[in-house]
Nucleic acid binder design. Structure first.
Lengths: 191, 191
DNA sequence: ATCATTATGTTAGCGACTAACATGTTAGCT
DNA sequence: AGCTAACATGTTAGTCGCTAACATAATGAT
């Protein structure tokens, strides 16, 4: 009997979720990821360490949380199916970026800087990239062919390279431009 | 004064190194990676858990140990510099494979099957791939351009996709063939 | 025989993470 | 209002990967 579920409960959950997340990110940037303990995060958010793990499966997840992936799948499906796959992915990536880049550019840069400069998180980033790849392949239909898989993997590798270059140069060339350059490099790599 | 270093010492070290590694791989395949504890591995190898960590920095490393990377760098350097980068990497990868594929194909398949089927190890695999990428870039000279980085990343992504497909299909299409197909797919992705 | 080096073991501890159980707080029903 | 079931949170104790500090035994050089 889980009927009406008054949403103030969910609001409260969302509130502590955000409080934990905010405390974590602040502590991470203040004193580094590795030296920050889950207990500290929990204490800063006013909860116990068990509550932390009820909201985030691992310590890494709180630093990597993003909502970009599901958006990407829908954008890709909306792209003309007649285009070559690489172009479709490129278009979806750039379109998705536009929706956040204007408002959240600073946060995006800060978060990715933290990730790239923390070995453990960098590892997880590649792992998440593989999850994104699975998601894209499913959005393209069942039983993807081997060449399709290779193409998707290459496109995501290009995009990741762009992101890494972006944070390494402190956001100097803007990310959309870098992604475009990356895809152009991809098409020329074939020659 | 560490002069002669009688090599029987090194032989003994190599022996225990191999004993630990063998015990670990056996236990991993018998009862799974996650459920196998470092203490069990150490006990099976007749050492203490501290000795284990003196030989392998982490539990993951014992499952991922390979000597392919340095070989790859020299092979790449030996390849004609006039070729397009993707072709050079492809040639180096295939040439490196030839040297082990005949004798160690079974072990290679088993090890990669373990890795691909274990989430934690899969993560580390991508991380190691980034290390390989760094190594290739250094072998190509200092200060690689952005397009070069993209190309290398895409080539390694293609190769990884080939390896994953190889173990998923239980070694059915042979790995060198899959790698060739992957690179052909790469060149066509550009169109 | 002595002494420095090296490999190994022992112990204690930290931190991420889990399981078991307890407590309080809220929602729905009578 | 009062009872009960559901749920969020806390407490406690434990496992496991991993590290540091110190102890011990075997080996090699003098």
């Amino acid at each position: 009997m889980t009927q009406p579920e008054p949403d103030w409960r969910q609001r409260k959950k969302a509130a502590t979720h955000d409080r934990i997340r905010a405390s974590a990110l602040r502590l991470f940037t203040e004193q580094g990821y590795d030296t920050t303990t889950v207990e500290q995060i929990a204490a800063a958010a006013g909860v116990s360490h068990m509550t932390f793990f009820r909201y985030f499966p691992t310590k890494e997840d709180v630093a990597l949380s993003d909502t970009y992936d599901p958006l990407l799948a829908t954008l890709l499906a909306r792209t003309p199916a007649a285009w070559p796959l690489a172009r479709r992915i490129r278009a979806a990536l750039l379109e998705g970026l536009e929706e956040v880049y204007g408002t959240d550019r600073a946060a995006l840069l800060a978060q990715n800087k933290l990730i790239v400069s923390t070995p453990v998180l960098r590892e997880r980033l590649w792992a998440d990239q593989m999850a994104t790849q699975q998601l894209i392949l499913q959005a393209l239909g069942p039983e993807p062919s081997f060449p399709t898989r290779v193409t998707v993997a290459a496109c995501l590798a290009a995009a990741s390279t762009a992101v890494v270059a972006w944070v390494e140069n402190d956001g100097q060339p803007e990310l959309p431009d870098l992604i475009s350059q990356a895809f152009e490099a991809l098409t020329r790599a074939a020659s």
